[in-house]
Amino acid sequence: MSDLRIAVLGVGIMGADHAARLTTRISGARVAVVNDYLTDKADQIAAGIEGCRAVADPLDAIADPDVDAVVLATPGPTHEKQLLACLEHRKPVLCEKPLTTDVESALGIVKREADLGTRLIQVGFMRRFDHEYIALKSMLDTGELGRPLVLHCVHRNPAVPPNFDSAMVVRDSLVHEVDVTRFLFDEEIVSIQIIRPAANPAAPQGLADPQIAVMRTASGKHVDVELFVTTGVGYEVRTEVVAANGSAMIGLDVGLVRKSAPGTWGGQITPGFRERFGQAYDTEFQRWVDAVRDGRMVDGPTAWDGYAAAAVCEAGVVSLNSGGPVEVAMVSRDSIPGA
């Protein structure tokens, strides 16, 4: 079978990483086309990949007859139009979160895909492919810990871009814990509250950081998340499940632990998301390529998962502004056959 010919749309930090990943670490695929609104950047990336060319218009890149599948690493506001084009041309697509930037358009994507009768959209929630999250999920599924009751999460970044605002803490950071909760517990989140502790003095003016998210699942499980995106320290993601017969924690970042004079103890903190989740991205992309090549098209989070995450985050932004708990408004999955 010949290599899958992939178009990478958006070759900023994430897209450039994905183009390099597909070129050097993923088997059965090659990057045939790249696109970016910064055409010089697209030309630069294309020049470094054998047999690759830059296409100026993203919709032309999707429609290109030399493209079998698409990776979307473009800004969220462009996703709806680009995903609809992928569906129109029946091309499998791995879409970095968010699916779209609002609940209504995300639901529209889910419905349009369901109308086709085949799943073509996979959403890039890469934590589902991380070895530690997979092990934790297996432990819960086998019942080793008994009934899970509580989920404690920590999500810390050393810094964020200058344009990062308070709502983006919910939409861009918390969204991962939203998907992790649904992945681990296999149920929907029904309410969310965002609490604003005292702000970090080092945070940019107007950025509410840290934030605390408190979520409740359909069966009553409690989830709390500390979100702190301007720590200035490192990248820390921890997840602890507390269950009837014990607890389990991942993300302790335990590599070399050093003890030395005079009485110091410690090790290294992961500097960024690439180092922490590099394996997860590689696994995610290899499994997606394999699924597309053998006709399954999707092997991971679906458009429905993207819609569900958008619905929770939308309620989270409402709570961020009101301070109180907000019910998550979602349609029933059963109401959309094939979703």
Rank of each mutant, 00 (worst) to 15 (best):
S2C: 05
R5S: 09
G15K: 11
A20I: 12
R21G: 10
I26V: 15
I26H: 07
S27H: 07
A29C: 05
R30T: 14
Y37R: 14
D40F: 06
A47V: 09
D57C: 06
L59E: 05
I62W: 04
A63G: 15
P65D: 12
D66V: 13
D66L: 12
V67R: 07
V67A: 01
V67F: 03
A69Q: 03
V70R: 13
L72V: 14
T74V: 15
H79W: 02
Q82R: 15
L83V: 13
L84P: 08
L84R: 15
R90F: 07
K91A: 11
V93Y: 01
E96W: 00
L99R: 14
T101E: 09
D102F: 01
V103N: 05
L107N: 11
G108Q: 10
I109S: 01
K111S: 12
R112Y: 00
R112T: 15
E113G: 13
E113T: 15
Q122L: 05
F125D: 02
D130N: 06
E132V: 02
L136Y: 04
K137N: 07
T142H: 08
T142Y: 04
G143Y: 06
G143M: 10
L145C: 09
G146F: 05
C153A: 12
V154R: 08
A159M: 08
A159I: 02
P162L: 14
M168F: 00
V175Q: 03
V178L: 03
V178I: 06
D179I: 00
D186E: 13
I189N: 04
S191G: 07
R196K: 15
P197C: 07
A202F: 15
Q205K: 14
G206W: 01
G206H: 07
L207T: 02
P210Q: 13
P210D: 11
P210A: 11
Q211N: 09
A213Y: 01
M215P: 06
R216Q: 09
R216A: 04
E226N: 11
E226A: 09
F228Q: 14
V229K: 01
G232V: 11
V233F: 08
G234N: 04
Y235M: 09
T239S: 12
E240A: 07
E240G: 08
A243S: 10
A244M: 12
N245F: 09
G246A: 12
I250K: 08
D253I: 08
R258M: 13
S260Y: 05
P262F: 10
G267M: 12
T270K: 02
P271W: 05
R274L: 08
E275P: 00
R276Q: 02
F277P: 01
G278D: 00
T283D: 03
E284K: 10
Q286S: 11
V292L: 06
D294R: 15
D294Y: 11
A303D: 01
W304P: 02
D305I: 01
V312G: 06
C313T: 15
E314R: 00
G316V: 00
V317K: 02
V318E: 15
L320H: 03
V326I: 12
E327R: 03
V328F: 14
M330S: 11
M330D: 10
V331C: 15
V331G: 10
D334T: 15
D334Q: 13
S335W: 07
A339R: 02
